[in-house]
C-alpha cells in the first residue's frame, strides 16, 4: 500500500511543520495567503489540524463523500464502500444530498470527493474546486406516470414531446425542485420543449427522488426519475414508465452519466486528497467497475459502468461544449454518449 505509506510520510512532515510553525510563532494558521503560497509550516499546521479533527492519524483515515440520493438510496454505495474500506483501511463517510448541495459541500471543502450526475454543473465545479474528474457509470432517466396515463404520453419516443403534451393536458407533474441532477435535467428538458412550466399542475416537492416517486405514486402524477431509483423502489410504486431512456431506445437527452471528482487540495488544503484520489481510482478500477456492473435490485442492473473501455481516448475529461474539429454536428461528448449507449448496454437490458 504505497499510498498509505506516502500519506503517513506526508502527515509526519505536516506534523513537523506544525511543531516548527508553533515554535516559530509564525501565526500562519489563519493566513490564507501564506497557505496558498505553499509556506510549509503554515499550510502544514492547518492541514494537520483539520485532519486530526476528521480522521485518526496512522489508520487509513476517513473520507467524506458527498453524493446524490440516487447512488445512496439504491444501495449501491453500501455495496461499493465496504470494498474500498477493506482495501484501504479507510472509513467512508457518505452524505447523501441533491447534486447541487453535494457540489456546494465540495466547493466549501467540507467533503473530500463528490459523486454526482449533472455534467454542466460538474464542469463548473471543475473550473474552480475540483480536479481529475472521471466518468464512473451511467444509466438513464425515465418519465414515469400513473398506469392509466391520463395525459396519454405512454410510449412517446421523445421526452420533449411528452413534456409538451403533459403541459398541454395540464396533467399533474412533480418536479424535484431541489437543484439535484435530476431536477437540472428536468429543467433542461422543459427548456428544450419550449415550455415554461407553471400553473397548478406543476408542483415542486423539494425532496429527494425516493420521496418524489412516493408522492407521484400516491397522487397519480408524472415525474422524471433516474432509472436506478425507480427500479429499486418499483415494487412499492403505482407508477409505470411512460417514456423510456436511451438504455431502451429512448432519446439521448435522457442519458444520465455519473462522475467522481476529488476536491482540489490547492483550494482546500484540509481535504484528504490522497484518499479521494484512491476512491476515484477504486470506482474506476476493474474491481469497482465490475461491482457496479454486478449490482442488481430485484434482478435489474441499475448502473452501467463506463470507466473502462478499449477505446484509448475513452474516459478522458471532455470540457463542456468541446468539439474536435471536423466532428460534424455531434460534439465529442455526444459521441461519447452514443458510444456508451451502443456499446455498453447489454442487449437484454
Amino acid at each position: 500500500m504505497p499510498a498509505m505509506i506516502q500519506r503517513r510520510r506526508f502527515l509526519q512532515a505536516a506534523g513537523t511543520g506544525a511543531i516548527l510553525g508553533l515554535a516559530g510563532c509564525t501565526g500562519g494558521d489563519e493566513n490564507q495567503g501564506q497557505n496558498g503560497s505553499g509556506n510549509g509550516s503554515g499550510g502544514g499546521a492547518n492541514g494537520t489540524q483539520a485532519q486530526q479533527g476528521r480522521s485518526g492519524i496512522g489508520r487509513g483515515g476517513n473520507l467524506t463523500l458527498a453524493t446524490t440520493t440516487s447512488t445512496y438510496d439504491t444501495g449501491l454505495l453500501d455495496e461499493l464502500n465496504p470494498m474500498f474500506q477493506q482495501a484501504y483501511g479507510a472509513k467512508v463517510e457518505a452524505i447523501s444530498q441533491g447534486t447541487g448541495a453535494a457540489i456546494e459541500t465540495g466547493s466549501n471543502g467540507d467533503a473530500d470527493v463528490i459523486l454526482v450526475h449533472a455534467r454542466d454543473a460538474e464542469d463548473e465545479f471543475l473550473r474552480e474546486y475540483g480536479v481529475n474528474r472521471r466518468d464512473v457509470m451511467f444509466n438513464d432517466f425515465v418519465v414515469v406516470g400513473p398506469p392509466n396515463d391520463p395525459a396519454g404520453v405512454s410510449g412517446t419516443q421523445s421526452a420533449t414531446e411528452a413534456f409538451g403534451t403533459i403541459a398541454k393536458q395540464q396533467a399533474t407533474f412533480l418536479s424535484r425542485g431541489d437543484d439535484s441532477g435530476t431536477n437540472t435535467k428536468e429543467l433542461s428538458i422543459w427548456e428544450e420543449a419550449g415550455v415554461q412550466p407553471s400553473g397548478q399542475w406543476y408542483q415542486e416537492t423539494g425532496q429527494g427522488m425516493g420521496d418524489t416517486l412516493n408522492q407521484a405514486s400516491q397522487r397519480g402524477a408524472y415525474t422524471l426519475a433516474d432509472r436506478g431509483t425507480f427500479l429499486s423502489q418499483k415494487s412499492e410504486l403505482e407508477l409505470e414508465i411512460a417514456v423510456q431512456g436511451p438504455l431502451k431506445d429512448g432519446p439521448m437527452i435522457l442519458l444520465n452519466p455519473y462522475g467522481v471528482i476529488p476536491v482540489d487540495p490547492a483550494i482546500h488544503p484540509n481535504v484528504n486528497y490522497q484518499l479521494a484520489m484512491a476512491y476515484a481510482g477504486f470506482l474506476t478500477s476493474p474491481q469497482g467497475q465490475s461491482a457496479i456492473e454486478n449490482y442488481t435490485v430485484e434482478g435489474s442492473q441499475l448502473f452501467l459502468p463506463n470507466a473502462l473501455a478499449e477505446d484509448p481516448n475513452f474516459g478522458q475529461y471532455v470540457p463542456q461544449d468541446y468539439s474536435a474539429p471536423g466532428a460534424g454536428s455531434l460534439s465529442r461528448r455526444e459521441k461519447q454518449y452514443h458510444y456508451w449507449a451502443e456499446n455498453l448496454v447489454p442487449k437484454d437490458h
Partner: peptide, 15 residues
Amino acid sequence: LSNAGPFGSLGLLFT
C-alpha cells in the same frame, strides 16, 4: 463550522 466559515479548521462539520 463549514470549511469556508470561521471555525472550519476545527474539522467539526459532519461529526
